[in-house]
Computed example of a mutant assay.
Amino acid sequence: MHTRLIRVGNSQGIVLPKKLLQQYQLSGEVDLTPTPEGLLITPITTPHRQGWDERFQQAIAGGQLPESEVLENLSDDSFEESEWQW
Score class of each variant (00 low, 15 high):
M1E: 05
H2T: 10
T3K: 09
R7L: 09
R7D: 10
G9T: 07
G9D: 02
G9E: 07
N10M: 13
N10G: 13
N10I: 13
N10S: 14
S11Q: 12
S11T: 13
S11W: 11
Q12E: 11
Q12Y: 11
G13K: 01
G13T: 01
I14M: 01
V15T: 06
V15P: 00
P17R: 08
K18W: 11
K19S: 11
K19I: 09
L20A: 06
L20R: 04
L21F: 01
Q22S: 12
Q22Y: 10
Q22T: 09
Q22F: 09
Q23I: 03
Q23T: 09
Q25F: 11
Q25H: 15
Q25D: 15
Q25K: 14
L26Q: 05
S27K: 12
S27Y: 10
S27N: 10
S27V: 04
G28K: 06
E29R: 15
E29L: 14
E29W: 12
V30S: 03
V30M: 04
V30C: 05
L32I: 02
L32E: 03
L32W: 05
T33K: 15
T33D: 10
T33R: 15
T33F: 13
T33V: 10
P34C: 05
P34R: 12
T35K: 13
P36G: 01
P36Y: 02
G38T: 04
G38C: 04
G38W: 08
G38L: 05
G38H: 07
L39H: 07
L40M: 11
L40H: 08
I41C: 00
I41L: 04
I41E: 02
I41M: 02
I41S: 01
T42G: 10
T42Q: 15
T45L: 14
T45K: 15
T45M: 13
T46S: 12
T46I: 15
P47Y: 03
H48Y: 14
H48R: 14
R49N: 15
Q50C: 07
W52R: 14
D53G: 05
D53W: 02
D53Y: 08
E54S: 14
E54N: 14
F56W: 11
F56H: 13
Q57I: 14
Q57H: 13
Q57W: 12
Q58M: 03
Q58P: 00
A59K: 03
A59E: 02
A59L: 10
I60K: 07
I60M: 03
A61W: 04
A61T: 07
G62R: 12
G62L: 08
G63Y: 07
G63P: 05
L65N: 05
P66W: 00
P66S: 00
E67K: 15
V70Q: 09
V70S: 03
L71V: 06
N73Y: 09
N73T: 10
L74I: 04
S75D: 13
D76V: 00
D76H: 02
D77I: 04
D77S: 08
F79T: 00
F79V: 01
E80N: 09
S82H: 14
S82Y: 13
S82P: 08
E83S: 08
W84P: 03
Q85C: 00
W86L: 06
W86C: 01
